[in-house]
Amino acid sequence: MITPEYCVAMARYNAWQNRQLKAAFEALPAAELTKNRKAFFGSLLGTANHLLWGDLMWMSRFDGGTAPEGGIGGSTGLCETGLAWSVERFRADARILLWAEGLHAVDLVGDLTWWSGALGREMRKPRSLCVVHMFNHQTHHRGQIHAMLTAAGAVAPVSDLPFMPEDGPWL
């Protein structure tokens, strides 16, 4: 279904997008980050926090590392400020990139089994599907953030994959 090269490309894309979001967030007053914009996860920061929480949860399943505390309901409060979010986002992006760069084709085959707090039961799905889901989930929520930034009158980042720099910097 996917290759290690795909994972590296998506990890780089993720880091590139999040660097741009960091810059966009820094250009906004703090109140604009936490303003309820009636999005699914409320605010810009709430949505960014949920996305970070989801990445950390999936990475814990892929690399066996630390998972975030709490469930989806508390994911919007993961970081209280834009600055705290940017620090944790940088760490998560480095974790994702290092993981992707270390993948071999065999690491993407077989099933992944995990406990889903959202569904309250054990899940079992193809590992490659779960990896694709993590990257798709990122794109989905960054699209929401892009729309909220635009509605707030901010300059939203370039998100087109073909326009990603070929040589980084990724983090």
Rank of each mutant, 00 (worst) to 15 (best):
G65K: 09
D55K: 08
G73H: 12
R89W: 03
G102S: 02
M59P: 00
G71K: 13
G110R: 15
A152K: 09
A11K: 05
P165T: 00
P29K: 15
G120T: 01
R142Y: 04
G120A: 06
T150E: 08
I145M: 14
G74A: 09
T139I: 03
T139N: 10
F62V: 02
G64R: 03
A84K: 11
E88P: 12
I145F: 05
H133I: 00
T81G: 09
W58H: 12
T34C: 02
L21T: 01
A9F: 06
N36H: 12
L78H: 13
G168R: 07
E5A: 14
N18L: 03
P157L: 08
Q17R: 11
S75E: 02
T76R: 15
M164A: 08
M59E: 00
D55V: 00
R142G: 00
K38A: 13
H141Q: 05
I96C: 07
A100N: 12
E80Q: 12
Q144Y: 09
S43D: 05
E26D: 15
R61W: 02
H146Q: 07
G42R: 09
P126I: 02
E26F: 08
K35N: 02
Y13M: 03
F163D: 11
R142W: 00
A39G: 13
K22A: 10
A118K: 10
A23W: 01
G73N: 15
A92N: 10
G70T: 01
P126R: 14
A30N: 08
R12E: 12
V132A: 14
L171N: 13
E88F: 11
S86E: 07
E88M: 11
M148G: 01
A67Q: 12
W170Y: 13
P29E: 12
L51R: 03
